[in-house]
Simulated scan of single mutants.
Amino acid sequence: MFDMIRAGDRGVANHGWLSSRHTFSFGHYYDPRRIGFSDLRVINDDRVAPGQGFGRHPHNDMEIFSYVLEGALEHQDSMGTGSVIRPGDVQIMSAGTGVTHSEFNHSQDEPVHFLQIWIVPAVAGAEPRYQQRHFAPEEKRGRLRLILSPDGRDGSLEIRQDARVYAGLFDGAERAVLELPADRHAYVHVARGAVELNGDRLAEGDGVRVRGGGRLEFANGADAEVLVFDLRPHELPQMT
């Protein structure tokens, strides 16, 4: 079963230096119908002004990953990690027992556009860790490239949950298919551009909740970048 969340129906936050769109309830935006989906808790579509960002703040027991679409994002954390994340990079911070971090626009001249995504972990109180890897465009062109998985297979980064995340780039005649078992849910997010999912046209910011598995076919993209979350078959995030 497909259930669409259109881009225009997302929560909105505008703080001057930050323009954000919330797929699920976050901050001052609350919708009881959208508290998350399976273990996926947050998809924030953030645009940060030059030289601005999120000051140091704490997290615990959350898998947090950033996916940069344009510009460069500068990361610092209490584990001693410092990095700059650019398009094609995937960064995941497993907060575990607790970590503080900051995320700033690395540029003084250009905005940065990125997705911040939270997934509830399978276990609480794990040791914090940080991972980052670059996935070149050709790895995602016309296919769904595994970027996060529980076991780090095929060069993906490891996530502490029974979840798999794929990234794909689609334009013109390029197409790809993902077959999901009947005992899985999925969430599809169009990060930019437009694409057809099983014949339905999706635009930038649109999302689809998929229940009960099935065939996901992506086609007829127009400069599209897509994330697909293969998730456990329950409705709302829960720690087990």
Results as ranks from 00 to 15, higher is better:
residue 188 V to L: 08
residue 199 G to Q: 10
residue 38 S to W: 03
residue 237 P to G: 05
residue 174 E to S: 11
residue 211 R to P: 00
residue 74 E to S: 14
residue 116 Q to H: 05
residue 173 A to N: 13
residue 229 F to I: 00
residue 12 V to L: 13
residue 84 V to H: 03
residue 115 L to N: 09
residue 80 G to Y: 00
residue 83 S to C: 13
residue 92 I to N: 01
residue 109 D to C: 14
residue 207 G to Q: 04
residue 85 I to P: 09
residue 54 F to H: 09
residue 75 H to N: 10
residue 90 V to M: 12
residue 204 E to R: 15
residue 101 H to M: 07
residue 238 Q to D: 10
residue 203 A to R: 14
residue 180 L to H: 12
residue 96 G to I: 06
residue 36 G to I: 01
residue 42 V to W: 10
residue 218 F to Q: 01
residue 129 R to F: 15
residue 220 N to W: 08
residue 94 S to P: 02
residue 65 F to K: 05
residue 114 F to A: 03
residue 235 E to V: 10
residue 209 R to K: 11
residue 42 V to K: 08
residue 35 I to L: 15
residue 160 R to H: 14
residue 128 P to G: 04
residue 131 Q to D: 05
residue 198 N to L: 03
residue 78 S to P: 08
residue 72 A to T: 11
residue 113 H to G: 03
residue 216 L to C: 01
residue 142 G to Q: 00
residue 55 G to K: 15
residue 89 D to K: 07
residue 181 P to L: 10
residue 166 Y to N: 02
residue 142 G to V: 00
residue 82 G to K: 15
residue 21 R to M: 02
residue 216 L to P: 05
residue 151 D to I: 01
residue 50 P to N: 08
residue 78 S to T: 15
residue 39 D to S: 15
residue 104 F to G: 00
residue 153 R to N: 12
residue 50 P to D: 11
residue 50 P to E: 11
residue 51 G to E: 09
residue 60 N to A: 15
residue 23 T to F: 03
residue 21 R to V: 00
residue 34 R to K: 09
residue 207 G to V: 13
residue 231 L to I: 01
residue 38 S to H: 07
residue 226 V to A: 06
residue 220 N to M: 04
residue 233 P to F: 02
residue 212 G to A: 10
residue 136 A to I: 07
residue 88 G to Q: 03
residue 4 M to L: 12
residue 213 G to H: 02
residue 146 L to M: 08
residue 171 D to I: 03
residue 57 H to F: 11
residue 54 F to I: 11
